[in-house]
């Protein structure tokens, strides 16, 4: 048997892995998007707690960001995947099911990525809010805007504008972090490459392809981010 060449692997034919790899890449994007969204929600609350929460909330938010930025992401994935499985198994036992029930890898992965990126989102949002001029908020109050209107029309858009570069960085980190989710058995890009490497005996080719696809996704998203930054700072005059 001859080994398929590098470009045969990339074909859609019977020897080709293109379809499987594309599905893997799509799963990677899905994990990253879900994790990023969860992180953005946590980050919004975290920033709110740090800015205008009481003492308890502030301390809790500080503890959260300090801990999550100091421990490896892999540990968080292990915690959610194995901890989640243990919890589900014991719940299952209550309902009479016996044997081991595993926690869905996708859910564990997305949650883990979300919880770790939430700490970064918190700092990005907090920094961006601080960059909003007090005068803008005072002007909104002076116009008689209510709290929610003020948030919706003034604070949120301005904060988002300042947060965009930071949000772009967090996205890049999340995208790369999603590769760790492969340990839970979710067939995303890296796991799919492992499968391909195992069944063809061509690990170098497969991991190289995976690296190129990651590079392509991150390049496309950084171009999109730059466009978004340009779009949302139309109203800003540059010196």
């Amino acid at each position: 048997m001859t080994q398929p060449g590098f470009f045969d692997l990339l074909s859609f034919g019977p020897d080709g892995w293109a379809k499987a790899l594309m599905a893997g890449a799509w799963m990677t994007i899905l994990i990253a998007l879900s994790g990023y969204t969860i992180g953005a929600i946590i980050g919004t609350f975290g920033a709110w707690a740090k800015i205008s929460g009481g003492k308890t909330l502030r301390v809790a938010a500080d503890a959260y960001t300090t801990v999550l930025r100091g421990i490896p992401d892999l540990l968080v994935i292990y915690l959610l995947y194995f901890g989640g499985s243990a919890a589900i198994t014991s719940i299952g036992r209550l309902f009479g099911a016996d044997g081991f029930i595993s926690f869905p890898g996708f859910l564990a992965g997305a949650l883990a990525v979300g919880i770790t990126s939430g700490a970064q989102h918190t700092e990005v949002f907090r920094g961006a809010f601080k960059a909003v001029h007090r005068g803008e908020i005072e002007a909104a109050i002076a116009c008689g805007m209510s709290r929610s209107l003020r948030f919706r029309r003034i604070i949120a858009p301005l904060t988002l504008r300042h947060a965009l570069p930071g949000l772009g960085n967090v996205w890049q980190v999340v995208l790369k972090e999603s590769a760790l989710v492969s340990i839970t058995g979710v067939v995303e890009l890296l796991r799919q490459s492992q499968i391909g490497a195992g069944s063809t005996g061509l690990p170098f080719d497969f991991y190289l392809i995976a690296a190129l696809i990651y590079l392509a996704i991150s390049t496309v998203s950084s171009i999109a981010m730059r466009q978004a930054e340009r779009h949302f700072s139309r109203g800003v005059r540059r010196g």
Binding site: L180, F204, Y207
Partner: peptide, 13 residues
């Protein structure tokens, strides 16, 4: 632009 884990696999495997 690529995950560290991919770099590790590329070198080790």
């Amino acid at each position: 632009g690529t995950p560290l884990l991919v770099q590790i696999f590329l070198i080790y495997y």
